[in-house]
Simulated scan of single mutants.
Amino acid sequence: MSEANMGINVMFRIFLLCVLVQCCFGDCSFHCEALSCPCQCYRHDLRCFNKSLTTIGKYPTHESFKYLDFAYNKITTLKKHQFRLPYFKEATALQLSANKIQIIEDGAFEGLIHLHSLFLSSNKIQSINAETFRGLKAVKRVYLDNNELKRLHHHTFKHVHKTLKLLYLQENQIHHIDASTFNNFPQLRTLDLSSNHLKTIDGSFINKLPSLAHIFLAQNRWSCDSSALCSTLGHIEELENERNVLLDTMMCSSPEIHVGKDAVDVLKTIDCTDVFVKQSQVKDNGDNSKGNVNWLNALLVTVCLFLSIMFQFVLFLKLQ
Rank of each mutant, 00 (worst) to 15 (best):
V142S: 06
K199Y: 07
D271R: 10
D27W: 13
Q82K: 05
A91Y: 03
L217Y: 03
L152S: 11
N294L: 02
Q40W: 04
S97W: 00
N50E: 00
R221K: 14
L229W: 01
C24R: 01
I104V: 15
S121H: 08
F70M: 05
G107K: 06
L317Y: 10
M1Q: 13
Q170I: 00
A34I: 00
L299Q: 02
V245K: 09
I56S: 10
I177H: 07
V277N: 11
G291C: 01
F133I: 06
G234W: 02
F185S: 09
L229S: 05
M310W: 00
L317M: 13
A34C: 04
C304E: 14
P60N: 12
F182E: 09
L217K: 06
L305R: 01
L247A: 01
T269W: 00
K290I: 09
A218Q: 11
G111K: 05
I206H: 02
K261C: 03
E105Q: 14
H235F: 05
A71K: 06
H114R: 15
S211V: 01
L118W: 03
H62R: 13
S52F: 12
K158Q: 15
K51N: 07
Q22E: 13
L112P: 11
S226Y: 05
K283F: 06
N294C: 00
F25I: 10
K199S: 15
T132M: 14
L112Y: 06
K74C: 07
